[in-house]
Design a protein around this nucleic acid. Structure first.
Length: 257
DNA sequence: AACGGAACCTGAAAGC
DNA sequence: TGCTTTCAGGTTCCGT
């Protein structure tokens, strides 16, 4: 369920549950999502950090537990004696507190290492670092990709995913298929505002301790994501779905240029 | 070096 | 009803 807002939620949830606590046991149910998860008993989790869609939990031995939620990853707290929950792939126990990692599609990762290239290669985090419009415009101008694909490049801005890119470009009134090179500095400013707006909106929408996601009964909280064939909330033109860079995309042909 | 596309997975929803 | 197809919020690898 991961884009930056969901991962930020997971960060806070994990921090409240295990920050400063000592690992007493671990269990990996499916080795495909875990790497180097060994000899963790006795280690203390110093903090829970986030950059983009990655989580980092530094340990007291110089290593860290890196976590990525993939498409369907999720952490949930249980009691140590509770049975495995559906889709449980791994667990970290802290005495009576047991954190379960669930992941239906197995695209997520739990990696124990001192450093992780994927983490080091991340660009600035829009929430923690803000967005440098000049830098964003520079990155956009240096590639032949579409603006949507460039925005989703994690080295450009860490944490912008399919939803944030779709929503931000709608907010900025720019077509997702526009070549990055043709985005002006002024438009880059609008995109930056759109990204911040989209992230803040998503964060505000998730206040519950245990997140209930969009598809489970709740209404779609997004302006145009998942709303192909519905009228644009701004200009009433019918929203269009297409594929860009292999990812489903929605845009408004009426007010995005 | 950069880019497009396939691969990696499973489940839910839509289509027939 | 039941089988088939489509789709899903991500990353990584591979060939060009």
């Amino acid at each position: 369920m991961p884009e930056l807002p969901e991962v930020e939620h997971a960060r806070g949830y994990l921090a409240r549950a295990i920050e400063g606590k000592k690992i007493t046991a671990t269990k990996v149910h499916d080795a495909r999502i875990a790497k180097g998860v060994t000899k963790l008993a006795g280690r203390q989790v110093l903090s829970v950090e986030r950059k983009g869609k990655w989580l980092k939990m530094p340990l007291d031995d110089g290593r860290a537990i890196f976590g990525h939620l993939g498409m369907t990853g999720h952490w949930t707290r249980r009691a140590a004696g509770d049975p495995p929950v559906r889709f449980e792939r791994a667990r970290l126990d802290f005495g009576a507190v047991s954190m379960r990692y669930l992941d239906a599609r197995l695209f997520g990762r739990i990696v124990v290492a001192k450093t992780l290239p994927a983490w080091d290669e991340l660009g600035p985090d829009p929430l923690a670092d803000g967005i440098d419009v000049q830098r964003l415009h520079d990155r956009l101008s240096r590639t032949k990709r579409t603006v949507k694909e460039t925005l989703m490049d994690q080295s450009v801005l860490a944490g912008v995913g399919n939803i944030q890119a779709i929503e931000a470009l709608w907010h900025a009134r720019i077509l997702p298929r526009r070549p990055s090179k043709k985005v002006t500095l002024q438009e880059a400013r609008a995109i930056a505002k759109g990204i911040t707006w989209s992230i803040k909106r998503s964060l505000a929408a998730q206040t519950e301790e245990e997140l209930t996601y969009v598809e489970e009964g709740g209404d779609n909280p997004f302006k145009i994501y998942g709303r192909a064939k519905e009228p644009c909330p701004r200009c009433k033109t019918t929203l269009v779905r297409s594929i860009i860079g292999g990812r489903g995309t929605v845009h408004c042909p009426g007010c995005q240029r």
